[in-house]
Design a protein around this nucleic acid. Structure first.
Length: 202
DNA sequence: TGGGCGATTGGCT
DNA sequence: GCCAATCGCCCAC
């Protein structure tokens, strides 16, 4: 379980889905090509939050897990909000007047989970194992039947997509919908004639 | 230094 | 099912 406490209140999430990323040996990992300003936290000690901004609008959270220097982490893909549901819903609905979101969808997906918890750049690098940290892991008794964990390919990665490093609670309705990687279609041609004569490269 | 594209999402056809 | 939104990262030039 993970919780984030801000001036607005506290939101806690029981994680239902994660993905593993393995540093320099994993072509799909942000840390595959070495240490940069963005991924520096991944190279640090375990138990810290690695937050990245993607698609111009989403903050996704990871927890580093391997020894310092290994740049291994788990992406927090989905979970069930167990505390602070009204606050999580308010964050998810901001800018969308009239919309309604089922509770189970509040943190169903990495971008949604980040928004529901109020995660942003300020949490990058914080020690989630420190009880005094605003963003911290919380011990929780396992729910349901032990051993009900499924595994499968990771979502949205363009390389090593077949590595079965996504793990989720079998049958949990808060697990995100799987979408296989699909290459983006190229931007529309700069001129109709260029498109017709096939000079636009794939 | 420029431009393609991403560990995504929500709205519309 | 398809596509726009939106911006920072990072590789290639």
């Amino acid at each position: 379980m993970l919780e984030h406490e801000t001036a607005d209140g506290l939101v806690a999430v029981m994680l239902s889905e994660v993905e593993a990323y393995a540093g320099s040996i994993d072509p799909a990992s942000h840390s595959f090509r070495g240490k940069t300003g963005r991924n520096a936290v991944m190279f640090g000690p375990p138990g810290h939050a690695y937050v990245y901004f993607t698609y111009g609008m989403h903050f996704c959270a990871n927890l580093t897990c391997g020894p310092e220097g290994t740049a291994t982490a788990v992406l927090l893909r989905a979970g069930r909000i167990v505390e602070g549901v009204p606050l999580a819903a308010a964050r998810r609905l901001a800018g969308r007047p009239g919309a309604r979101i089922p509770d189970r969808d509040l943190a169903r997906g990495p971008g949604r989970l980040g928004q529901a918890l109020g995660i942003d750049r300020a949490q990058n690098g914080v020690d989630a194992c420190d009880p005094a940290s605003p963003l911290r892991i919380r011990a929780a008794a396992p729910e349901g039947t032990p051993g009900q964990i499924s595994e499968g390919p990771r979502v949205g990665v363009s390389s090593a997509a077949d590595w079965p490093w996504r793990f989720w609670r079998t049958g949990d309705p808060t697990v995100s919908v799987y979408r296989p990687y699909v290459p983006r279609t190229r931007p529309k041609p700069v001129s109709p004639s260029a498109a017709e004569d096939g000079t636009i490269p794939r």
